[in-house]
Amino acid sequence: MSCWVTIQDYALRSIGIGERLLPREDFTLCQQFTLIGSGMIWNVYFALLALMAGFFLATALALGKASPNRALRKPAEWFIFLFRGSPLFIQFFFAYFLFLSLKGVSSVFDPFTSAWLGALVVLFLNTAAYSGEIFYGALQSIPRGDLEAADAYGFSGWKKFRKITWPTMLRLAWPAYTNEAIFLFHATTLVYFSGFPAWRQKGDALYYASYFADKTFNPFVPYPILAMYFILVTLTIVGSFGLVNRRLNRHLPAERRARLRLRPNLIR
């Protein structure tokens, strides 16, 4: 079987298009590359949607935590503490079993027990908490002169936030936020190892990599392939976030611009 046929069969296997049966013996390199790459669709899906939705909640959380109003500050603080203080792995398990119990109450919760929605919700809340803390830190370190200048020019309320506070917050937070994005992307590999079932063996990249490692009893092929895919996507993230960083910093003289340093953090 040529490699082209394999790609046709398995390139979209993780979303249920193509050959149903996974290869069982005589694993070729081509099969491993194709299937693990096919699993990457899920990693990208989880990371992209969670990050985009989480961005807005994170902004709200940061504003809430910085708010002088106790009724706004306390919930934001507790939310951030809850999601940053416990392991994502346990959060996944808890959420899965929670949704499983809720399923008995109402059929509305049916889709939440499958990974595409349930895990996405957990990742969304999780990344919102981590990014919220980053944004809060940036909000605290906005130069006072900037805000005073805004006042002097007669900015206030929404306009001041939209034109001065928010862009400066983003600019200061961006290097750390880039790391958070990379970090979240890596965290998506936990989904199929933490309760959420891979229905009909439709899993993410690590799911297929460990499938091959289990079947061939040889970890030295699938995991390096996985690593290669992840490094590629990580570089893509760094590149695209770098472009945004350039835009956010475009008004500053060259030497004051915050350079983006790749320092992905560790496990959650």
């Binding site: 965290a187 590999t189 936990l190 490692a213 970890p219 995991y223 992840f230 490094i231 990580t234 992905p264």
Partner: peptide
Amino acid sequence: VVRGVPDIAFFLFFVIALDQ
């Protein structure tokens, strides 16, 4: 080596690789 690759992958990899 820790940059760019998910850590869970390392865990799953090392457990078999060390044993072997």
